[in-house]
Simulated assay, not measured.
Amino acid sequence: MTMLPEKLLTGYRTFMAQRYANETMRYRQLAEQGQTPETLVIACCDSRAAPEIIFDTSPGEIFVIRNVANLVPPYEPDGEYHATSAALEFAVQSLKVKNIVVLGHGRCGGIKAALDTESKPLSPGDFIGKWMSLVAPAAEAVAANELMTPFERQTALERISIRYSLRNLRSFPCVDILEKKGRLTLHGAWFDISTGELWVMNPETGDFLRPDPELVDLQPGQ
């Protein structure tokens, strides 16, 4: 009987022989002293857009929340189950992160589903449909623009959803208070899977710009 898919077992053996062997002391320190990441990344669960790979981080450097379409729901202390809100609360209140990055990406399946008004639920629960209804007003407005190509609509909503999540982050009292005190900074970014380009949101204008190769400043791009 196979305990895990062979691909995963092979990957684990490589991890132990290479990365863990090279960073044994770091893993032991993290186990003994706990984690102290300075940045929370809220990303999509898409297998092609892993934050740890995109930002080339070491263990313990970033705290990651992943869900469909990297969405942050509004603050709703209603006694229901809120996985994203719970992880956000832990990162801000317990880990005391200094930065929050909402990381969107190109060709997002969740965003595509939000734009497809004729798509049928994948199950009776329609969990994806309910989740993506968070951006339904924006999706309807973008989908109605006949002058845009399907690719342009997709990219537009992917970036709008990042701004939406940033707005909802500020509806959480702990985030809003710390940001106003200068102890927490919010960022938006969008990753193009096909080219590897990272576009960063200008906090003042909301425009997405491409950093130069040295990441010194932001240069407008098309």
Rank of each mutant, 00 (worst) to 15 (best):
L40C: 05
L40M: 13
L40N: 07
I42P: 02
I42G: 04
I42M: 05
A43I: 13
A43G: 15
A43S: 15
A43T: 09
C45Y: 00
D46W: 02
D46E: 13
D46G: 02
D46T: 03
D46K: 01
S47D: 12
S47N: 13
R48K: 07
R48V: 08
A50T: 13
P51V: 11
P51F: 10
P51I: 11
I53K: 14
I53C: 04
I53D: 10
I53V: 15
I54T: 07
I54L: 15
I54E: 13
I54C: 10
I54R: 13
F55C: 14
F55H: 13
F55Q: 12
D56T: 08
T57F: 01
T57R: 12
S58D: 12
S58H: 09
G60S: 08
G60F: 06
F63R: 02
F63H: 08
F63V: 02
V64C: 14
I65P: 04
I65R: 04
R66C: 11
R66H: 09
R66S: 15
N67A: 08
N67T: 02
V68N: 05
V68E: 04
A69T: 05
A69V: 04
A69M: 04
L71T: 14
L71Q: 13
V72C: 03
V72W: 05
P74V: 10
Y75V: 03
E76T: 14
P77I: 00
P77H: 02
D78F: 08
D78I: 08
D78M: 06
G79K: 08
E80M: 02
E80D: 07
H82P: 02
H82R: 10
A83K: 05
T84E: 14
S85T: 07
A86P: 00
A86F: 00
A86C: 04
A87K: 06
A87G: 15
L88H: 07
E89T: 14
F90S: 11
A91S: 14
V92Q: 00
V92Y: 05
Q93F: 00
Q93M: 09
S94M: 08
S94N: 09
S94F: 05
L95W: 08
K96T: 11
K96V: 13
V97S: 01
V97L: 01
V97H: 01
V97A: 02
V97W: 01
K98A: 15
K98T: 12
K98V: 11
N99D: 15
I100P: 09
I100G: 03
I100A: 01
I100S: 03
